[in-house]
Design a protein around this nucleic acid. Structure first.
Lengths: 187, 187
DNA sequence: GTAAATCTTGTATGCTCATACAAGATTTCT
DNA sequence: AGAAATCTTGTATGAGCATACAAGATTTAC
């Protein structure tokens, strides 16, 4: 991959995030995205081929952020409880949990059932998060692994949904709040 | 209001639910909706004026279902705990928690920030649910009313989100599961 | 320096869509 | 029955959109 190609990839997906945040997934146009990147709609097509491929790349970028945040936080975590907290905190990492990305996240997921590429990404991501959570919860709540896993996933999704609505993403406060919830939920 | 107007209102909003479920909020067209109702796009316009007004009416219909389910279930509920359970169960009522409506619910909310009418409905609905939950939680978890209210709302939203993704809505099982979660969360 | 490769863009194309409109069908009222 | 009100639809309109394309600009390679 050439250097410039990587640069444009980053610039354009990042512009896509801002444009979708501003206009909404249902209404955003290639021109909107191009303007956000100070480029032309045609050049986006040159790099990505189609709008859908651009969206897929954009989502991939967000998923990469989440994965990296989770791995980083798992590094310093000793024991199941700390690892569980790390996983949950990663979901609300400073680099991830910001208004534009919240907005995108929720809109992409709600449109996933209608796009095979987004559906695929959703499935993969969800399975990964789920298996990470389960691995820790087996040690912590042996009798209720399934229930607590599903509850935590629903809780985190719900927090994203509300954040997207309100436009307010106080990552630090949300991590604190999530820790309190964990305290109530996991013994 | 004439009788026929009420009939069409019901037929068309109900067709809108099916059409959005099938095609997605971002892609559904007036023609899709009309076909689902065995009518013409023009007649939808006659009754609702614009697509956006149709969507608003459709959402209003779903919100009405939720309100009615909650009121009904509150009737037979004695004491804060039972009332809390009634509120949560109402969210997963048989008449509400079905695939097409899940799908719509999530898509409408994720698009709410970009539509003043949907945003309004979202705000009102959320505030109503929140105040109902809080009223009961004040008696049950006096020290953590805010946290548990927010957690429950996020949890319920998250369950809807996942149901919309998977297309699976086992209302009864979900109510049971929610009751278990309540047991973990509320002392 | 210059040719090739890579990148960028303005414009054209063809399509889809929401909505307007006017004419016709049906129902209601008397 | 006949007139008026209400409802329905086919078609027209005009806007907006993703994408294709070809020409030109820039960068890279040697």
């Amino acid at each position: 991959m050439s250097r410039i190609r990587d640069l444009r990839n980053e610039e354009l997906t990042s512009a896509a995030i801002r444009a979708v945040h501003r206009h909404g997934y249902a209404q955003v146009t290639m021109t909107d995205i191009a303007q956000e990147a100070n480029a032309s709609a045609a050049s986006i097509n040159y790099y990505f081929g189609t709008k859908e491929k651009l969206m897929e790349a954009t989502m991939r970028r967000l998923l990469g952020l989440l994965r990296r945040a989770a791995l980083e936080r798992l590094q310093g975590a000793q024991g199941p409880r700390a690892r569980l907290e790390a996983l949950v905190a990663a979901n609300f990492d400073d680099r991830l949990f910001v208004p534009a990305q919240c907005s995108l996240w929720v809109q992409f997921w709600s449109n996933a059932p209608y796009s095979t590429s987004l559906a695929r990404l959703h499935r993969i991501n969800r399975a990964r998060v789920q298996s990470h959570l389960q691995a820790e919860l087996r040690h912590l709540v042996p009798g209720a692994v399934e229930t607590v896993t599903a509850t935590l996933q629903a809780y985190m999704d719900g927090v994203w949904l509300e954040a997207a609505q309100s436009g307010i993403c106080d990552a630090q406060a949300t991590r604190r709040e999530a820790a309190v919830v964990l305290g109530r939920l996991v013994v």
